[in-house]
Amino acid sequence: MPKKRKNRGRHKGDKGKEPMVYCDNCGKLVPRSKAVRVTVPYSPVPGDLARELEKQGAIVPRYYVTKTYCINCAIYLGILKVRSEDERKRKIASARPLVRRETVAAPPATKPAQTQPPTQPTQQGNEGAQTKS
């Protein structure tokens, strides 16, 4: 039977067993390498009250909470998107914007043209290079 994914949907490779973690949404046991981890900021103060307190100069604490989801919950919550087979097999990262090489490599149009002829090399550095005939 053919495999759908080369890495069998996990990052472990050929390392044997690995710890299992619980999904924070549904409670399913998932291999740690297969779980999706998301770090989100959490503030115990509501947003509108926090803005007013910050205007007055108060410091509002923000805590970073790491949540662990199974694949099903991550797709359901919109953290991951369903990708086609071609996108799954592509090696480049889809989150990174592509840079066009024409715009990067093109010389600037406002560069002034050189009007001076190239200068002759001095005799100091090239003493051994010239031979007398």
Score class of each variant (00 low, 15 high):
residue 84 S to K: 03
residue 71 I to C: 03
residue 82 V to E: 13
residue 93 A to V: 04
residue 43 S to D: 11
residue 67 K to Q: 10
residue 59 I to V: 15
residue 29 L to E: 15
residue 72 N to F: 06
residue 84 S to V: 07
residue 70 C to A: 08
residue 103 T to H: 02
residue 42 Y to M: 08
residue 83 R to H: 10
residue 34 K to I: 04
residue 79 I to V: 14
residue 45 V to H: 03
residue 65 V to W: 12
residue 58 A to R: 11
residue 56 Q to V: 05
residue 99 V to D: 09
residue 92 I to V: 13
residue 80 L to Q: 07
residue 42 Y to C: 02
residue 61 P to G: 02
residue 72 N to P: 04
residue 57 G to D: 13
residue 49 L to S: 05
residue 27 G to R: 12
residue 52 E to W: 00
residue 79 I to H: 09
residue 61 P to R: 06
residue 34 K to P: 00
residue 98 L to S: 05
residue 28 K to G: 01
residue 42 Y to K: 04
residue 101 R to I: 05
residue 74 A to G: 09
residue 63 Y to A: 01
residue 50 A to T: 00
residue 32 R to Y: 12
residue 49 L to I: 14
residue 60 V to T: 11
residue 81 K to H: 02
residue 32 R to A: 14
residue 35 A to Y: 01
residue 25 N to I: 03
residue 81 K to A: 07
residue 94 S to I: 15
residue 81 K to I: 09
residue 28 K to I: 13
residue 82 V to N: 07
residue 94 S to F: 07
residue 76 Y to H: 09
residue 89 K to H: 02
residue 66 T to F: 02
residue 88 R to F: 04
residue 56 Q to G: 07
residue 80 L to C: 04
residue 75 I to W: 02
residue 56 Q to H: 11
residue 70 C to I: 09
residue 76 Y to S: 02
residue 51 R to K: 12
residue 46 P to F: 06
residue 28 K to Y: 13
residue 80 L to S: 00
residue 53 L to E: 06
residue 100 R to M: 06
residue 71 I to Y: 05
residue 64 Y to P: 00
residue 29 L to S: 13
residue 102 E to I: 13
residue 33 S to V: 05
residue 33 S to Q: 01
residue 83 R to P: 01
residue 86 D to E: 15
residue 76 Y to G: 02
residue 60 V to R: 10
residue 44 P to D: 11
residue 68 T to M: 10
residue 51 R to H: 07
residue 33 S to K: 02
residue 35 A to T: 09
residue 50 A to D: 01
residue 51 R to A: 13
residue 94 S to C: 00
residue 46 P to C: 02
residue 87 E to Q: 15
residue 68 T to R: 10
residue 67 K to N: 15
residue 92 I to K: 15
residue 63 Y to V: 09
residue 33 S to R: 00
residue 94 S to L: 14
residue 70 C to P: 06
